[in-house]
Design a protein around this nucleic acid. Structure first.
Lengths: 189, 189
DNA sequence: AGAAATCATTAAGATATCTTAAGAAAGATT
DNA sequence: AATCTTTCTTAAGATATCTTAATGATTTCT
């Protein structure tokens, strides 16, 4: 557990043992069963989660009842509703475990204290955030300009093995198409 | 000029006069005429730009010749192709002035040196990047779930006065619809 | 194993949006 | 003012994707 986080962090900057311990000990570890919620729509997102193991989805239930998945989170990813976490407002979406999932979680206050104690962490989260922004920009590029079929095959390529871990209707939801139409796409391959 | 940047920066953290001077002097100032390019598609994005005055668009020309605008940049915004800037790869899009535009520009190397000399700047750009990520997530929410008409009226609301500064076909491009269809939407208000 | 629940497919008709092509309006340039 | 260029509108037919509803296949639970 501690190893896994350390290994992740030192990809971004140098840390000594003490710092790594402090970071790890500031987080609390938590396990969620399949279908458990890490965050519920409309409530404040209290934590930034580092996924040690498992799989989660971030999604929103629309007024008409439709579910709309914006992100899947897997091992070694941070997940949170950043808007809610930073501004302490109600979250527009939920985070739910799709498999048994173990995370390290840290509150905003805890994280801010860490920034003060370990300034280089500021750099690490700058870089992580930059990478997330780039990833989202790339995703956008695809969603804006590719049709459903291309988005589907792109996804299979980018995250192989994913279609085995997640039901097809959730993939459809992530791709922003109906399950019926995804079924069509697969048929007419 | 210096005032404008300083005023912007101190919204994010405390800086002393010396630091503010150093930051300002590390940037170079540059003016672009209408239609000039700050960045050309396929070339490496050498600068992060802070727009002092003016208006730019970030857009990509697709294989079929269509232009696709992803971002408009206005006063007091940073603009860059982050992927290209950080990874020093060819940019997938261009940045072009739509009005006479004055910017402060800084290279990756210069910025990295500043991070070392003024560690709190690391925090500032962490926060700026977080805010950009949140803004993009919000935009996504709208683009994924609202139809063209709703996106149009949302945009008018969010950035009022914008439709006066930018031709309608560019707004259509940003909204990811054809100019013809936008014309339709406006007619059937 | 059987029942219940969840998930995937099929098909027909509906809708949003695009494509093409032409003409009208507005703005820029001589 | 006249011409050229850019931008906007109109309209008809085409296409991608959705909606609904029903059935079939899997997985989960008892």
């Amino acid at each position: 557990m501690k190893e896994q986080l350390s290994k992740y962090l030192i990809r971004y900057a140098n840390f000594n043992k003490l710092d790594l311990n402090l970071i790890y000990n500031t987080c609390s570890i938590q396990s969620y069963n399949k279908k458990d919620f890490l965050l519920k729509q409309n409530s404040v997102c209290k934590y930034k989660y580092f996924i040690l193991e498992g799989l989660v989805r971030q999604y929103r239930v629309e007024d008409n009842g439709n579910e709309n998945i914006s992100v899947f989170g897997i091992e070694n990813w941070w997940i949170t509703n950043l808007d809610s976490f930073l501004n302490e407002t109600g979250s527009i979406n939920s985070i739910q475990a799709l498999e048994k999932t173990t995370v390290l979680q840290i509150t905003k206050t805890e994280l801010e204290e860490l920034y003060l104690k370990i300034p280089v962490l500021e750099r690490v989260f700058r870089k992580i955030t930059e990478n997330m922004l780039i990833a989202l920009q790339r995703k956008n590029e695809i969603f804006m300009k590719k049709n459903s079929k291309e988005r589907y095959y792109n996804m299979l390529e980018q995250i192989p093995g994913f279609s085995q871990r997640v039901p097809q209707y959730m993939i459809a939801s992530y791709l922003n198409i109906t399950p019926e139409y995804l079924s069509d796409i697969r048929k007419n391959k």
